[in-house]
């Protein structure tokens, strides 16, 4: 059922650049981020924490979500940002730290303190 077509990073970035050339964007698409050293991270984590956003907004938690959905979303985000928290890039690490704080805050609100 699934067809897997090899797609290298350089090719996907070329495709992005070509798309960007055709449609002038208001904000230029971020180039592939070359983290220092061993880790060559493809892009910045999707959410960049902003002080004006609530922890729920940062974690994309909506009032309609069930407890199970919230739990699943927090688990997914924790896995992602715990990994980013090990980045050599201090900016990514700092953003991941803010996200982890938001994740814990939402968890405590919804499931109580440990």
């Amino acid at each position: 059922m699934f067809k897997k077509i090899l797609q290298s990073l350089s090719r996907s970035q070329t495709a992005k650049t070509e798309t960007a050339k055709q449609v002038p964007a208001k904000n230029p698409a971020p180039a592939a981020h070359q983290a220092r050293g061993v880790l060559n991270q493809i892009a910045q984590p999707a959410a960049t924490p902003s002080k004006s956003q609530t922890p729920e907004e940062l974690c994309q938690i909506t009032p309609k979500m069930s407890k199970d959905q919230i739990k699943a979303q927090l688990k997914l985000l924790y896995r992602r940002y715990n990994r980013s928290a090990s980045s050599l890039d201090s900016k990514i690490r700092s953003e991941a730290d803010q996200m982890l704080t938001a994740i814990v805050t939402v968890r405590e609100k919804n499931f109580g303190e440990i």
């Binding site: 090899l6 797609q7 290298s8 090719r11 983290a35 061993v38 060559n40 984590p45 992602r80 990994r83």
Partner: peptide, 26 residues
């Protein structure tokens, strides 16, 4: 992915996430 492809490029990733943004190309 393409006709007449002369060079196959295979990126090696490390990480569990299926979203390519959250893995490392090593």
């Amino acid at each position: 992915s393409e006709d007449n492809e002369r060079v196959i490029e295979v990126d090696i990733t490390q990480g569990e996430d299926e979203d390519a943004k959250f893995v490392d190309v090593i």
